[in-house]
């Protein structure tokens, strides 16, 4: 079991300290990424998805800190406790970009405007491989070709402003994949792109996953994307994973009221505009003034007094867990 895992996160707590106030952005998050599989992390904006990704990469802003818990990268050399590495130390830097790579939401701003795309992809190779300058140039063109960028030789010499949004994201993926990482973290990689381009990017990621056996952590706020791409799902709400399991577990047998609400809010393709989409009642609470118990209680149709206490994670099946006091009753009623 353990040796098919690429990464395990246990009880991770990452807090932000701004204006002397504490924002418990991640308040005990546990999950695993399986080798060569896609873990979809889904949740409304502000629930801690990006902070989870930054914690794994040790790219947190200065005013935030991993307070508790562990992040273990199961490398070929043995387990590495990422949370114990120095943030910008040599060991962390050699993992970043080489073994765990990341792509970001907005490809428009994620590339440096004054360097050619080829140069920026080559930089990763320069620091993580022994390739000569000439070999790096060849590898860059190979990568761009694999990403489906036409006339890659020309394109490598061009600057980000010569690229369209979709092409920039492809270039970002080329950069991330350049050293054949074991894990690719994609933080809302298509949110800034239009729908047809989205599909192309996802196809590309799926192809890379199967060809290179890369594990993917795909962050999104779109359940539809999860349904298409993920093997496993983690549903996040306000710093907790409220439900996790395989795609079948979570999408077919959702246990948590929040998961159901999210599922109810996806429009179904082909049903037209007038379908009954229920948006989730209310808004996410102020992260500095969080509810005491279950974070979702104020917006939940099933909340009772019991929900004033923080629920614990309970196993539904071997692969499926949920964080709700009342999931059994609710499930029976449904």
């Amino acid at each position: 079991m353990a040796n098919d895992l690429a990464l395990s996160v246990k009880d991770l707590k990452t807090f932000f300290y701004t204006n002397k106030r504490c924002n418990k952005a991640l308040n005990g998050v546990s999950f695993e990424i399986r080798k060569g599989k896609t873990l979809g992390v889904v949740g409304e904006s502000g629930c801690g998805k990006s902070v989870t990704a930054s914690s794994i990469m040790q790219l947190l802003p200065r005013l935030s800190r991993i307070e508790e818990g562990s992040i273990t990268y199961h490398s070929e050399r043995g387990d590495i406790r990422i949370d114990e590495l120095e943030r910008d130390g040599a060991e962390m830097r050699s993992i970043r970009g080489e073994e765990i790579a990341m792509i970001f939401q907005d490809p428009m701003t994620a590339l440096n405007p004054v360097y050619s795309v080829g140069f920026q992809i080559g930089e990763a190779l320069q620091y993580h491989t022994d390739l000569t300058k000439k070999q790096r140039g060849e590898r860059v063109i190979e990568l761009l070709t694999a990403m489906g960028i036409p006339s890659p030789g020309e394109r490598a010499k061009q600057f980000p402003h010569n690229y369209s949004g979709g092409m920039r994201q492809r270039a970002m993926i080329a950069m991330a994949m350049s050293c054949n990482p074991k894990i690719l973290i994609a933080d809302e990689p298509t949110t800034a792109l239009d729908v047809t381009i989205q599909a192309q990017i996802f196809n590309l990621m799926n192809k890379l996953k199967s060809e290179n056996d890369t594990a993917i952590m795909l962050i999104t706020h779109d359940m539809g994307v999860i349904a298409e791409l993920a093997d496993d799902v983690a549903v996040m709400y306000m710093g907790n994973i409220v439900e996790a399991g395989t795609v079948d577990d979570v999408l077919r047998r959702p246990q948590h009221p929040y998961t159901r609400a999210l599922l109810d809010s996806i429009p179904i393709l082909g049903r037209g505009r007038d379908q009954d989409i229920k948006s989730i009642r209310g808004a996410t609470p102020d992260p500095y003034e969080r509810p005491k118990g279950c974070q979702f209680a104020p917006r939940c149709d099933f909340a009772t007094d019991a929900c004033e206490v923080m629920p614990t994670e309970e196993a539904v099946t071997d692969t499926h867990r949920v964080m709700c006091h009342r999931y059994k009753e609710i499930f029976e009623n449904a």
Binding site: R93, R96, G97, F104, Y127, M175
Partner: peptide, 25 residues
């Protein structure tokens, strides 16, 4: 800017991020 985060995510050393990426821009 965000490209600094990209540069860090690539695993570049600090001096290179500062001189090549931040300062150049």
């Amino acid at each position: 800017r965000e490209f600094i985060r990209t540069a860090r995510a690539k695993g570049l050393p600090q001096w290179r991020i500062i001189l090549y990426h931040a300062f150049r821009v």
